[in-house]
Amino acid sequence: MITRDDIFQKINVYSWGAEVEFTLNGQGGFKDFNGVNESLLWNQEYILTLKPREIHPQLQSGGITGYTLKIEATDTASSAESVGIRLAYALLCLAINKHWGMSLSWPDSPLPCRVIDRTKPKGITGQGFAFVTNHVEISEFVSVLESSFDKLADVPYQLLLSMELCASSRLESNNRSKLIMLVSSFEALAIQRNYSTELSPLIRDLKSLVKEAEIEDESLKNSILGQIEGLKHESIRRAIRRLMNDIGLGDDDCQFVDKAYKARSKIVHEGQRVPELDIMTTRIDLILRHAFSVVASHDITLS
C-alpha cells in the first residue's frame, strides 16, 4: 500500500498529480482556512493540498474567492487524470449539497483538472488580469434611454426576454454558461410556427401506425406518439435559421449561428467540451446586437 511518506519522498516513482481550480461565491467558503497552502487530513492514500488562487479583481470585488486543490501522487499520468476527475466530482458533490455557487476553471481540454508532472522544475510564473470598461456620462445615459424609449410603443415579450438573456450572459465568467444563455437568447427571438393544418393528415397517419405497432412498452409507445405530436411545430433550429434570414445575415454568419447552436447542444445534451468558446461567444453577442437593432427598427415582426 502506498503511504504519504512514499509519495513525499519518492517523487521519481510517484511523479504525477492533478490540480482542480475552482471559484466560490460568497455563500461558500471555509471557516478555518489559514489563507496559505494547507495540507488537508483525510482517509485516502493521496496527499491533498488546498491553496488560495489569484482571480480577476472584478470577481474578487463581487465576493468571489479562488482556490486550487492539488492531489498527489500517482505513478502514471493516466492515473493522475483519473483521480483528478474524481476530485472534481467530489468538489461538485460538496457544492450541490451545501448550496454553494461554484465554478470549475477548466483548461481548454476535456478535463476538469490539470495533470501535473512533479519532477519538472517550477521555474518562474506570472499572471495578469485586464478588463475594459464602458462607463458613460449621466447625460449620455439619459440620451440613450430616451432614444430607445421612443423606438417601440409596444415591446414584444420575446424581445425583452432575449435582450435580458444576452445582457445577463455578460455577468457570467464561465464561457459555457455564457454560450448557453446567448443561444437561448436566439431561441427566445425565434418564434416556432405551427403547421397543424398542413401536417394534420400526415400526423394522424403516423399515429395510427404507432398505435397498431406491436410495442410492448406502453411508455415507449406514448413517447413516440408525443414526438409525432411535436411535428406540428417547427423545430427551434429551423426557426432560428428563418430568423437569421429575416434580419439579413449573410451565409457566413448564418452558418456560425448554426455552429453555436450545435455547440450548445453538445454541451447540454451530450456533456461534451467545446474549445475556444470565448471566440464563439464574442461573435454571437455581436450578431444578437444586430438582431435587436433590426427588430427595434420595425424591419421585421417576431412571428
Rank of each mutant, 00 (worst) to 15 (best):
N12F: 02
N12G: 11
V13D: 08
V13L: 10
Y14G: 07
S15D: 01
W16N: 02
G17I: 07
G17D: 09
E19N: 05
F22M: 12
G29K: 11
F30P: 08
F30Q: 02
K31N: 11
K31L: 12
D32M: 08
F33W: 05
N37V: 06
N37L: 13
N37D: 13
E38T: 15
E38L: 11
S39P: 03
W42V: 01
L48N: 05
L48C: 05
T49Q: 10
K51W: 09
K51F: 14
P52A: 04
E54F: 03
Q58E: 10
Q58H: 01
Q58R: 12
L59R: 07
Q60R: 07
Y67F: 13
Y67D: 03
Y67K: 05
L69Q: 10
K70Q: 13
I71Q: 03
I71D: 03
I71G: 02
T76C: 06
A77N: 09
A80L: 08
E81M: 04
S82W: 03
G84A: 09
R86P: 00
C93I: 15
A95W: 07
A95V: 06
I96E: 10
N97F: 03
W100D: 06
G101N: 10
L104A: 15
D108F: 08
S109V: 10
P110G: 03
L111P: 10
V115E: 14
T119W: 00
K120D: 09
G123T: 06
A130C: 07
T133Q: 08
H135M: 12
E137P: 01
E137F: 11
I138G: 03
V144K: 11
V144A: 10
E146N: 10
S148T: 14
L152K: 10
D154I: 14
S169M: 12
R170C: 09
L171M: 14
S177G: 00
K178Y: 04
I180T: 09
L182Q: 13
S184A: 12
F186Q: 01
F186I: 00
A188E: 06
L189V: 00
Q192I: 05
S196G: 02
E198V: 03
I203C: 05
R204N: 06
R204D: 05
K207G: 02
V210R: 00
K211E: 15
K211I: 08
E214V: 04
I215D: 01
E216Y: 04
E218M: 02
S223D: 09
G226Q: 06
G226H: 05
Q227H: 13
K232W: 04
E234D: 14
R238H: 09
R241W: 01
L243M: 00
M244Y: 04
L249F: 15
D252C: 05
D253G: 02
C254D: 00
F256E: 05
D258P: 03
K262H: 08
K262R: 12
A263Q: 07
V268C: 06
R273M: 15
E276Q: 14
L277E: 07
I279R: 12
T282S: 15
R283P: 05
R283D: 11
I284S: 00
D285Q: 07
I287L: 11
R289L: 14
R289G: 14
S293T: 05
V295Q: 02
V295C: 04
A296V: 09
D299W: 00
D299Y: 09
D299L: 07
I300S: 07
I300Q: 06
T301K: 15
L302C: 01
